[in-house]
Amino acid sequence: MPEQRNSDNRIILVTGATKSGKSEWAEHLATQAEQNAEKANVQKSVIYVATARPQLDDREWQARLDLHRQRRPHHWKTWAVESDLPSIFLGATETDCLLIDSLGTWLANVLEQDDEMWQHNLKTFLQNLRNAKSDVILVAEETGWGVVPAYPLGRLFRDRLGHLIRCVGTIADTVYLVTGGHVLNLSQLGFPLDQHLS
């Protein structure tokens, strides 16, 4: 059974497939948190944590990044974090809302880590997330619903990401799945698997 968090902050996980609208929904939730805080006369600053590496020689990839950038409000801060994602929670405060997009691109950036190093990285990430003072919205790609990748690195990525999403889901207050043009609140529709297996 996962450890209980002793904090007033909110942790939200948004998962979905490619082009499902998961990033747009996460951005909507961040905007909503900002607006709700404003109505309550509380300061709330959204910090967009971009994990994707720029690839200037890949026009299609750059177009994707530009689309995300254009969609974000100009007053949001942006932190570019390619590999050391666990440390970002240490620099955030109660008045921040971190929007991390995405866990899959972060994992791709550190996929060369051996199992021992990755397990240490994962443990640190989950511990820092659990102890975060800020609100946190995490975007993650669902990659395990298709065929088994034909090459080892693809299988490693899929397995690690699936496990990462499951671990984050046990910590999150709310988990959303975005698919088929709809948003499903899995926290209302289902129950935490790990709690029912213990």
Score class of each variant (00 low, 15 high):
H163S: 12
V168W: 11
H182N: 13
L111H: 15
V46G: 09
I47N: 10
D115L: 01
W118E: 03
H196S: 12
S198Y: 11
I12Q: 10
H196I: 14
G144P: 11
R130P: 00
R5V: 02
T95N: 03
K44H: 09
S45M: 14
I100T: 04
I171R: 00
R160H: 04
V81C: 14
R71D: 08
Q32P: 00
R160A: 06
V42W: 10
D173K: 08
C167E: 15
L29K: 04
W118N: 02
R10H: 04
F191L: 10
T51G: 06
Y48R: 07
N109C: 01
T105Y: 03
L177P: 01
L13W: 09
C97L: 09
Y176Q: 08
C167H: 09
R53P: 00
L189F: 02
D194T: 12
V14S: 09
K44E: 08
A37G: 14
L99M: 06
M1H: 08
P54Y: 01
M117P: 00
I11W: 06
G154A: 04
V42A: 14
L177E: 02
A33C: 12
N128V: 03
R155W: 07
V110R: 01
W118L: 15
E3S: 13
K22M: 06
T143L: 02
P152M: 08
F125D: 03
D8P: 02
L56Y: 11
A63R: 05
K133N: 14
K123N: 11
I137W: 02
L184G: 03
E116T: 13
L13S: 07
E112A: 12
Q43T: 15
M117A: 14
N109T: 05
A132C: 15
N109R: 09
L65G: 02
N36F: 08
T93Y: 09
W79G: 03
I88N: 00
G180E: 07
T51Q: 08
E27Y: 03
